[in-house]
């Protein structure tokens, strides 16, 4: 750990970052707050409405539904991807060419543009031209992600697992590599079981990468937009319409600036709270080291 020195001149080094991010973050944020308290018809016709939009949005059942769906989705994603990711990391070969090859193969889904991920699964899941949909139907499963809610959910989840489990696996892999060989040797002398090795040697060392993995997966699944948009278009009905898509529909589709802005801010506050919880956890874990 590096001992840092006090030096306020360091601000000059951070200033470009501050200005650059502030331009794209603070000005839009201020504008959204402005929109959220007014009824805007055009440039010259805007009326102050106070908290009305917030009232409307907070009591809108459509938004409750999409918030609930979002949480169910994000927690399902975590529940599947974190254990699976740990498992994959434990199975990966540790050294040599095979190790590098595995790393690269695992990383492939992460490098594909999100709309192409949607397209891949849109094609792959179709019963007429996709291998996955065709196989399921050939096996006698009545599968159609475009008309059946359950199938749509399963496909969106499967797509996310396909797309992002590698991230968790790569994180855990790098965490496992950081464990000194001596630990394993000691465990062997003690005749520790596989489970004991995992529980008392590997898992504690994975804690810090897992926190980052959970943070990234929670946040990124919380803002998911492109993949389900391409795959199901939010359907059937609204069954796979998550928060970002509800918001985008409101803002761009129906051009309801006021409610969309109020909704944006509520969404942002949730993200702020969760980020803060994780950030505090990470700082405390760094300190404990």
């Amino acid at each position: 750990m590096i001992i840092k020195t006090d030096n306020n001149k360091a601000w000059w080094l951070v200033l470009p970052v501050f200005l650059l991010v502030a331009f794209s973050a603070i000005i839009p944020l201020m504008t959204v707050v402005n929109y959220s308290v007014q009824d805007i018809f055009d440039q010259n016709n805007a009326y102050f409405v106070g908290a009305d939009w917030y009232r409307e949005v907070l009591r809108d059942p459509r938004l409750h539904d999409s918030l609930l769906r979002q949480f169910i989705y994000s927690f399902s994603v975590l529940a599947i991807e974190i254990p699976l990711g740990i498992g994959v990391a434990l199975m990966m070969p540790t050294k040599g060419r095979m190790g590098s090859l595995c790393l690269i193969l695992l990383a492939i889904p992460l490098l594909i543009p999100w709309n192409v991920v949607g397209t891949i699964w849109q094609i792959f899941g179709r019963a007429d031209i996709g291998l996955f949909g065709w196989t399921l139907n050939a096996l006698g499963v009545d599968y159609n992600y475009a008309s059946n809610t359950g199938d749509a959910w399963a496909t969106v989840l499967l797509m996310d697992v396909w797309h992002w489990t590698s991230l968790v696996a790569l994180l855990c892999y790098s965490g496992l590599r950081a464990i000194p060989e001596a630990f394993y040797q000691a465990a062997e002398i003690d005749r520790a079981s596989k489970w004991a090795v995992f529980r008392y040697i590997q898992l504690p060392r994975l804690k810090s990468v897992l926190v980052i993995g959970i943070l990234l997966r929670f946040m990124d699944s919380f803002m998911i937009y492109t993949e389900p948009f391409v795959l199901t278009g939010g359907g059937p009905g609204n069954s796979t319409t998550f928060l970002s898509q509800t918001l985008t529909k409101m803002a761009i589709g129906q051009f309801d600036l006021g409610p969309a802005a109020a909704f944006s801010l509520i969404y942002f506050l949730i993200v702020l709270l969760v980020s803060w919880l994780f950030f505090t956890t990470i700082t405390y874990m760094d300190k404990a080291k």
Binding site: S24, A25, I27, P28, L29, T31, V32, Y35, F222, M223, Y225, L243, S244, Q245, L247, T248, A251, I252, L257, A260, A261, S264, L265, Y267, F268, V271
Partner: peptide, 8 residues
């Protein structure tokens, strides 16, 4: 989420 800042 980018969607939050999308509006302005």
């Amino acid at each position: 989420p980018p969607a939050v800042f999308l509006l302005p």
